[in-house]
Design a protein around this nucleic acid. Structure first.
Length: 101
DNA sequence: TAGATGACTAATA
DNA sequence: CTATTAGCCATCT
């Protein structure tokens, strides 16, 4: 289960006020084509309350549909609390908020 | 044990 | 911009 652990470590390192994508995380841990597994790791979310999965969005900056915290509504609120703004399409401006290593 | 599934991405047309 | 395809690997059935 090393892959999941690495995913959680990477996600935990996302600073407040920033977001990251599945692809970025996958690349960070050395599996650039395993974005799906990153999504799986967060879906499973065994570290609820520890891993900030709300800071992880897809490549377009959209929120996850089947969010484990209770829905994308909650996710959006949490992100706004951290100072992340959404555009009129309800997506995040990755140019501004994408976390770069 | 094998096959299908999934919070995805990148390349190609 | 959209549609299709392949790649990844832990779970589920």
């Amino acid at each position: 289960m090393g892959f999941f652990e690495e995913v959680y470590e990477a996600v935990k390192n996302i600073p407040k006020g920033k977001v990251s994508t599945y692809g970025q995380i996958a690349k960070l841990i050395g599996r650039p084509r395993s974005a799906k597994v990153v999504g799986w790791a967060l879906h499973s979310n065994p570290y609820f309350g520890v891993v900030p999965c709300h800071r992880v969005v897809n490549r377009k900056g959209e929120l996850s549909g089947g969010f484990a915290f209770g829905g994308s509504e909650i996710q959006k609120k949490m992100l706004e609390q951290e100072g992340i703004a959404f555009d009129n399409m309800g997506t995040i401006n990755l140019e501004k908020y994408l976390w770069k290593f």
